[in-house]
Design a protein around this nucleic acid. Structure first.
Length: 324
DNA sequence: TAAATTAACCGCCAAA
DNA sequence: TATTTGGCGGTTAATT
């Protein structure tokens, strides 16, 4: 396998969403940290903007761009356009021209969230399938009729152009790109490390299944915990899990508590809730579909489980994440 | 909304 | 003898 370093550039602009930049950046940086198989690091990431120096994010945070995109002509492997308040960026004719030029010179061109509007304005998405944050999907389709908008996708690939939905979807996209380059195992490792950091400060979620799966003893349960987290649908009854682990239910329950600090059913419930939370935040799939995919059997059961654990019903929970 | 059914959990004891 | 494992039954909680 070639061990050359791929250059990744993320386009920032005044009014951009910080997490659209930081999320993918951390994914590629994480890959560089955890996948040092070759001599050279797999990625070198830079933030580019209209000019090098300060860029003011939508949130007010100031970011320092490494370079002006005007100075960048070639040598970029993956180019990513962040989302946010993209008005300024879509009005920047020089940026749009530059993106068009780069389209033929990069291996992959991607957008996160409303960054799709910038690509669309540049004409890059014409005739292509694409997505954006679902709250903006309608606007994208209206403003750019030639774009084939897929509002429910997490991310969409059309040729070498990728577009992704919300903030976390941008990280999912970045992970998919890492997977293309470095394989599934590396992408999974990066995801686990990132999830750990993402979930740890989340005060209200008193317990992260990912964290538990990550930090659990590497004994025979380690694989099982991971399997649970990755297969929220499917039979996760105590008896079935015990059989998978090759123990009697009684013994399994004891070992499980000793290893994780929780009981099997609670762990499973938490894993399913975490999955459902993400799905509710990022997709518009019906409650019924989400409930099924996350192993709740029925929307009614998911509703009660949410009520019990989060003190919110799924629909209300989802409402909180609508960006207006 | 209430009652019946089912699943999970845990203490305890016995077998390995 | 000490530790690990498995089974039984009662209690509690969740589901239909």
């Amino acid at each position: 396998m070639a061990t050359r370093t791929r250059r990744v550039a993320i386009v920032a602009y005044d009014g951009a969403q910080t997490l659209d930049i930081a999320g993918p950046l951390e994914v590629f940086a994480g890959a560089a940290r955890y996948a040092h198989r070759g001599a050279a690091p797999p990625y070198a990431v830079a933030v580019v903007a209209a000019r090098a120096g300060r860029v003011r994010m939508q949130s007010g945070l100031t970011l320092i761009a490494d370079q002006s995109y005007r100075e960048v002509r070639a040598g970029i492997d993956t180019l990513i356009v962040a989302g946010g308040n993209a008005r300024a960026a879509t009005a920047d004719a020089a940026l749009l021209r530059w993106l068009c030029r780069m389209l033929g010179r990069v291996r992959r061109l991607a957008s996160v969230c409303t960054g799709a509007f910038v690509l669309a304005e540049a004409g890059i998405l014409a005739g292509r399938r694409a997505t954006t944050h679902w709250a903006s999907a309608g606007a994208l389709a209206r403003q750019y009729p030639r774009v084939r908008v897929e509002p429910d996708a997490l991310y969409v690939q059309d040729g070498h152009v990728y577009t992704s939905a919300g903030v976390t979807a941008g990280m999912d996209l970045a992970l998919a790109l890492v997977e293309e380059d470095l394989g599934h195992a590396t992408a999974l490792t990066v995801a686990r490390h990132l999830v750990l950091f993402l979930k740890r400060p989340g005060g209200q979620s008193q317990f992260s299944t990912y964290l538990a799966a990550q930090t659990s003893a590497p004994g025979p349960l380690g694989d099982l915990l991971q399997w649970i987290v990755e297969h929220p649908d499917g039979n996760l009854g105590v008896g079935h899990l015990a059989a998978r682990a090759g123990m009697s239910p009684r013994h399994f329950a004891r070992v499980f508590v000793a290893a994780t600090g929780t009981t099997p059913a609670k762990f499973v419930a938490n894993a399913r809730i975490e999955h459902a939370r993400r799905r509710l935040e990022e997709s518009r799939g019906s409650l019924k579909v989400v409930a099924n995919d996350c192993g709740f059997g029925s929307a009614e059961r998911m509703r009660r489980t949410f009520q019990r654990h989060l003190h919110v019903v799924p629909n209300d929970y989802r409402q909180r994440f609508i960006v207006r």
